[in-house]
């Protein structure tokens, strides 16, 4: 079968910006796919930058890292990172990643997805993977809205904020992601905005080297939908807001981390604890079975 013409054009589009690019992230990003699809002023690119930098800093074997994304703006991340990468169904990235981790415990598994994907449609998988303590890093980019579909209310949209499906202000209280993660059993929980990109990167490095279910929430400006519907200016204005209205409180009780509409955002590393991971417990269970105990006759 011949490759259609339009696809061939697409193929060269990425490298058109060509020259002799030696971007330092060349070996962790699929530069043939850049420019990416995210809007001007979007923070997802920053989360990816922080992640790419963290991969290098964490000194892990990149052949043994798999990244899984769901659907949505952040769901496209897997396609831009040069790892074994999977762009799966809406909300099921954690379930897919669980299969990978359980079937091949040597892999380091990263789930990189958005708030709607992980906390709404994938909420069940999120809490159960945390409960099992599957050894994976979950990066949740929180932009307070469903952006790819045009600005619908998300489970993280603050009360009273506008969205296309709540034109009179959001009437549902939002999820507090660190609190949800901690109470479900995550061993590492941190939150940063994408403006605090170096701290975000350091959290990624720590979480990559942490055994167990780690959650890092990256609060990101949505300059096209969340900010436009709520008249918050462009991406830069939102970044300025994060600059002025964030406070670092390491070890803060996750109960206190609710985010009110245009309220103060508390960031930091909140949870760093030890719990046996699913693989540990599974292997322990296996070692306790005597060889002939279960042999069918």
């Amino acid at each position: 079968m011949e490759i259609p013409k339009t696809m061939q054009q697409e193929e060269t589009q990425g490298s058109r910006s060509g020259m002799d690019i030696t971007h330092p992230m060349e070996n962790v990003l699929r530069m043939d796919r850049i420019p990416h699809i995210w809007c001007p002023g979007c923070g997802i690119g920053l989360a990816v930058t922080a992640f790419a930098a963290a991969l290098e800093k964490a000194e892990i074997d990149l052949n043994k890292v798999a990244i899984v994304s769901g659907i949505g703006c952040t769901g496209r991340v897997a396609g831009y990172v040069k790892l074994d990468s999977f762009h799966t169904t809406h909300g099921r990235a954690i379930a897919f990643a669980t299969g990978i981790k359980v079937a091949n415990p040597d892999m380091k598994v990263v789930v990189f997805s958005g708030d709607g994907d992980l906390i709404a449609i994938g909420g069940n998988h999120f809490i159960h993977a945390a409960r099992r303590n599957i050894d994976m890093l979950v990066i949740c980019v929180n932009n307070f809205i469903y952006a790819m579909t045009g600005g619908q209310v998300a489970p993280t949209t603050p009360l009273a904020a506008y969205a296309t499906t709540c034109p009179f202000g959001c009437v549902e209280p939002p999820f507090n992601i660190p609190y949800l993660a901690e109470s479900s059993g995550a061993v590492y929980v941190a939150r940063w905005t994408t403006l605090h990109v170096r701290r975000l990167m350091n959290s990624f490095v720590e979480a990559l080297n942490k055994k167990g279910f780690s959650v890092v929430e990256a609060i990101s400006p949505c300059a096209q939908y969340y900010s436009r519907i709520n008249r918050l200016g462009d991406g830069l204005d939102m970044m300025r807001f994060y600059h002025d209205n964030t406070e670092i409180r390491h070890g803060e009780d996750t109960k206190n981390l609710d985010i009110a509409y245009q309220g103060k955002i508390i960031m930091g590393k909140f949870v760093d604890r030890e719990r046996p991971s699913y693989t540990d417990r599974y292997n322990e269970w296996l070692s306790e079975i005597k060889d002939d105990e279960n042999e069918p006759g």
């Binding site: 074994d84 990643a97 669980t98 079937a103």
Partner: peptide
């Protein structure tokens, strides 16, 4: 390897993920 997932949706997702590790699932 065996895992009991939280619902059938995640079960087949995990099976597909596991298949990519080279294990028949």
């Amino acid at each position: 390897t065996f895992i009991q997932m939280e619902d059938e949706i995640s079960t087949l997702a995990a099976v597909i993920g596991a298949s990519w590790t080279g294990k028949k699932s």
